[in-house]
Amino acid sequence: MVSGLSLRDMFLEGVRPIEKLLRYVEIEDDRAIIDASELKHKEVNDLLRYVALKHVTKVDLVNVVGQRYIGTRLHIPNPSPKLEIHIQGTPGNDLGAFLDRHRIIVHGNAQDGVGNTMDDGEIVVYGRAGDVVAMSMRGGKIFIRDNVGYRTAIHMKEYVGKIPILVVGGTAQDFFGEYMAGGRVILLGLNLKEGERHKAHYIGTGMHGGIIYLRGKVEDYQLGKEVGILKLEEEDWKFVERQVEQYCNYFGANKEKIMEGNFIKLVPVSRRPYGKIYAY
């Protein structure tokens, strides 16, 4: 028999009250610096929430060592502050999960679950990101400079004017855009060699909404059977160019060179991929 008293709460054990955390934060007008090196994930968000309520608009979150959920607890309807969070170090999983309008800039790599079910705002990663990036993302934008892992953009959504956008500079692993229900994803493949194909298989399996713009080489067998390949229309080119321009502004790449590449547009063949499997 195991004693319940020995059950450790890996997340909350040893979390200190906010009064004891104030020594990790410096506020000057609308700016703040938070030193995360000794903070638990809850403490990081306690402080972010604290500074948001102190009318801070820009935070430097330094010495980040894998804390999860950065930015998740910033849904503060009244007075509805908006933060720009600059992360130095490596943020942990679920960066910006359920994010509400804020901006997060990561000066380094990110781990799994970036922008999980994100609602609005922007995440910019100056590096790579792990698995399940932008899962069920509902709005806002994510820019990843390099590669992303498995299951990127799974079940992204959109509704009328609220369309999430994900731009990835490198390539992606398998199940890219699986079950996608909406949104726009751009995969640029900038770090692929000449003629090298993208890494992902099962691209867009079960896709029933949204658009994937893919630059570079991809074989038919890498695509899910629910996706169709189209050429880009004028509207598409305009859209892609705008996003690529933004990508270049952030990461300093050459827009013209990127736009010269070979783009294809992947769309679902049906909005009802599984409509015919049932007997009514």
Partner: peptide
């Protein structure tokens, strides 16, 4: 649900 009208909700 925040998905387009007429789309299967999978």
């Amino acid at each position: 649900r925040m998905i387009p009208e007429g789309t299967d909700a999978l």
